[in-house]
Amino acid sequence: MIDVAGWAPEARETTEVIGVAPAAALAGVLDAEPPGEELPPLWQWLHFLERPAQRELGSDGHPREGRFLPPIPDRRRMFAGGRFRIAEPMRVGDTVTRRDELASTAVKNGRSGEMLFVTVRHTFLRDGIEIAVEEQDLVYRSGDAAGRTAAPSFEAPAVEAPWTLPMTADPVLLFRFSALTYNAHRIHYDEEYATGVEGHAGLVVHGPLLAILCLELPRRAGVAVRELSFRARTPVFARQPFTAAGGPDGALSIEAPGGVTAMTATFA
């Protein structure tokens, strides 16, 4: 039984100068033009990275211990979604402080048993003034992985929308995104581990990468985004064709093979 009674990690602050290189590198991964001085929404995920020592990692590649990692045995982590509200954009050269705090926890029962939902809030400040707030929703299971995922479809989805961005994430793209975000979770680069230990149907496309691809649609259309929310619904696997779809009405999604909507998002 999951029990996190008494778990109340203290808030933490980290300060960083926003450099130009990470955004240029991500633009290369996405075959896009670099964004200029303003950091696009969610591209802050390239900054404020934790870089634990190798000895501090667990068998899944994630750190064994951490301020906002719940104290439950044999943790398995999933990215569930989040929200982001922007008052002022971050810019290259800015000195930005990120304040991290635990926003909420909730234990729920799912098909695979008990799950712990954790929301971590990141508040970004420039010169002491709040410029943006992000909340990340993460789901943790304790114990063995769920049953093996069914074999995925590789048929390209048929999508009609004002904005579309067809994609296929091969292992090279996943490796490069893992490197940019310093994400060592083995489900993104170790296929034997992803399928044999965690029960996935292949290498898993990063949830944050799918969210960024959703936001590429308004960015490439020249539409400013000040507020957004997104929810991961089902995994997308390496080599599966998928499409980021949406329009100026503010609705976005990731459409995967077999008529599956892998992520939904809204912006304003």
Rank of each mutant, 00 (worst) to 15 (best):
A211T: 10
V172N: 13
E216Q: 15
E191P: 12
R226D: 13
F177H: 12
A184N: 09
H185N: 07
A184S: 15
H200C: 01
S178W: 07
F177D: 09
F242Q: 05
I212Q: 10
V197E: 11
P218R: 02
L203A: 06
G259P: 05
V205T: 13
T234F: 04
L228A: 05
G196F: 08
A262Y: 07
A221F: 14
G207L: 10
L213E: 03
T243Y: 06
F230H: 11
L203H: 07
H185F: 09
H200Q: 05
A232I: 14
I254C: 00
Q240C: 04
H206E: 09
P218W: 00
F242P: 02
L174Q: 12
A201Q: 06
H185P: 13
T195K: 13
V236C: 03
M263Y: 11
V223I: 15
G247M: 04
A251Q: 13
V223C: 05
R239E: 15
H185C: 07
D170T: 13
A256S: 14
D249S: 10
A184I: 10
H200D: 06
P241E: 02
T195L: 01
G199P: 08
L203P: 01
A221W: 13
Y189Q: 10
A221Q: 11
A224E: 14
R219T: 11
V225C: 00
S253H: 04
T181N: 09
G258Y: 10
L215F: 13
T264D: 14
D249K: 06
I212K: 01
Q240A: 04
H206V: 13
L209G: 03
T264L: 14
F175D: 04
A251R: 15
E227R: 15
Y189A: 02
A184L: 07
A224T: 15
G247Y: 04
A244I: 11
E255M: 03
L213F: 13
E227W: 10
R233Y: 04
M263A: 06
R239L: 14
F237T: 05
F242W: 15
L180A: 09
P171L: 06
D170H: 13
D190L: 04
D190K: 12
E191A: 14
P248E: 14
A224M: 11
G199A: 06
A194K: 07
P218M: 03
L209C: 04
A179D: 11
G222A: 08
Y182N: 12
P257C: 08
P257M: 08
A184C: 14
